[in-house]
């Protein structure tokens, strides 16, 4: 599988400056995923550093339980989403594959990356045009979501399997080997927690750049993730 990213000007003009890039499942996944990750990050934070104690009978309260439940529920949705998204990479359009592949052997892609970096350092007047992801964004998405998300999924379900106990699929599939791999459970927690920060950092940069590109570059961004069409402004 290879991915073509740079703009084919001829095709573009034929399409009237607007291309259908993100198919509905990709868009739906994107926004569901946004909700999941926000939920996971906030509930994860409160799992690690719980809120001040509530008063009353223990049996009357379930605050920590609900927070953890929300985390696990979002975790499940996140996991299913990632799997569906992976499936869509096979059946969807050409751009649906991008998230899972880095064209590291493509010198043009690297050149685009450096141009993009220069653009962020205010050294370029204009960035390149891309129908799919720009190389820099592509790189970050791959590391943060494809790899980082998978890591969170694996470690998350390994931790989940500890509570779910032997016999539960997550214990069999993940806990059984992830815990021994790290040596013990505590390091799995620590790394799950640490990479969570990595994802938060990605989100900050990603949201900023999405908005910024929307405003400053020559192509639509946010609306592209809404109606699927990338429109070029000139």
């Amino acid at each position: 599988m290879s991915v073509k990213t740079e703009v084919d000007e001829a095709a573009l003009t034929a399409a009237g400056n607007s291309v259908y890039v993100y198919e509905a499942p990709v868009r739906a996944w994107h926004w569901i995923n946004v909700l999941c990750i926000i939920t996971l990050s906030i509930t994860g934070w409160f799992i690690a550093s719980p809120l001040p104690s509530v008063s009353g009978e223990a049996s009357e309260n379930f605050l920590m339980g609900y927070i953890r439940f929300a985390h696990f529920a979002a975790g499940y949705v996140f996991a299913v989403g990632l799997l569906v998204r992976l499936y869509w990479a096979f059946v969807g359009n050409h751009h649906a594959k991008q998230l899972f592949i880095l064209p590291v052997t493509d010198s043009k892609w690297w050149a685009g990356m450096f141009k993009e970096i220069r653009w962020y350092l205010y050294l370029e007047k204009q960035p390149n045009k891309y129908i799919g992801h720009n190389p820099l964004g592509h790189l970050f998405m791959f590391f943060a979501i494809t790899l980082g998300g998978t890591f969170m999924l694996v470690t998350g379900f390994a931790l989940y399997g500890e509570g779910a106990q032997e016999g539960h699929w997550s214990h069999w599939l993940f806990t059984s080997w992830v815990i021994p791999l790290f040596g013990q459970s505590q390091d799995v927690h620590t790394w799950h927690h640490f990479i969570a920060w990595g994802i938060v950092v990605f989100v900050i940069l990603h949201v900023y750049t999405a908005i910024r590109e929307d405003i400053m570059s020559r192509q639509t961004m946010i609306s592209a993730m809404i109606d699927g069409k990338r429109t070029f402004r000139e």
Binding site: P50, L51, S53, V54, S55, G56, E57, A58, S59, E60, N61, F62, L63, M64, G65, I67, R68
Partner: peptide
């Protein structure tokens, strides 16, 4: 554990 689940620390 009930205190953990309840959020009582």
């Amino acid at each position: 554990r009930p205190h953990f689940d309840a959020g009582q620390f």
